[in-house]
Design a protein around this nucleic acid. Sequence first.
DNA 1: CTATCATTTTACCAATTAGCAAAATGATAG
DNA 2: CTATCATTTTGCTAATTGGTAAAATGATAG
Lengths: 140, 140
Amino acid sequence: MIETFETVAKAVADPNRTRILKLLEGGELCVCQITTVINLSPGGISKHLNALKAAGLVQQRRGGKWVYYRLADREINPNATQFLALLRDSLNDDPTVVEDRELLSHVNFIPLGILCAQGRAAIAPVVDEPLSSPCCGVSP
Amino acid sequence: MIETFETVAKAVADPNRTRILKLLEGGELCVCQITTVINLSPGGISKHLNALKAAGLVQQRRGGKWVYYRLADREINPNATQFLALLRDSLNDDPTVVEDRELLSHVNFIPLGILCAQGRAAIAPVVDEPLSSPCCGVSP
DNA sequence: CTATCATTTTACCAATTAGCAAAATGATAG
DNA sequence: CTATCATTTTGCTAATTGGTAAAATGATAG
């Protein structure tokens, strides 16, 4: 029992995993979408997702070619539910979380086929553009 | 910000530290009381307490020869407050936590001077006695 | 001021973990 | 069936962490 609690707390105690959980608060995502936003190797993301699943924090579903993850809705583990509730009220103003959400909003426009193939390159131009660079059509 | 959250979550994600926090829910305790119940080396306990303090989960107070720790009451860190609330509703039926509380109830009868000097030996006879050993005055 | 004693810090070891690259898996499309 | 492609698993390395023993600290009592 204390072991279960520990598993969940450990799963939450990693910044990349909390970032993933905060992303999933917006609804389910496929692995390559998560990978694009968090910017780790696919293997690394998969391992994190596995840790979250083992803790009962997320669930999986295959849809065609892709695997989608979402926050656990079925109550597998009461500890997990409580941690998810805590997390929902936390970090909403965290710069990294805000940035991830912003990036995700761009990612959402990209068809999965293209996104999975190209990864971050599919959105790179948007990413590197800071704010008000004098672009396209400003008078010489 | 996410770093603070991570610090708190990491602090909670260790079973010996959660045991300490659950003990402190009953009120402040001096280091040697905690050491006796958790049964780690003093150095180890001190390090755990330091991690909890760094996370804003506990506070310190010196009283004469001894240092007392308690759950953070001043709101140092909103994350910490939330985790403490979560923890208060968790693990209350956990065997280890229950056992720790039981042991603490015995420890509470022992003057600190004796407890700090003798450590677990001061309560050892109670600890090893299971339940109904045929003791003192049962007919031959 | 010195000795004592609770606590903290330090030095070190064993175990765990996050990360990547590359191989393995397993589903889909032809 | 075979090829492709998303995801997972598998070594492997570097870094972190929990534990102890022992030295250092710092307050108290004589």
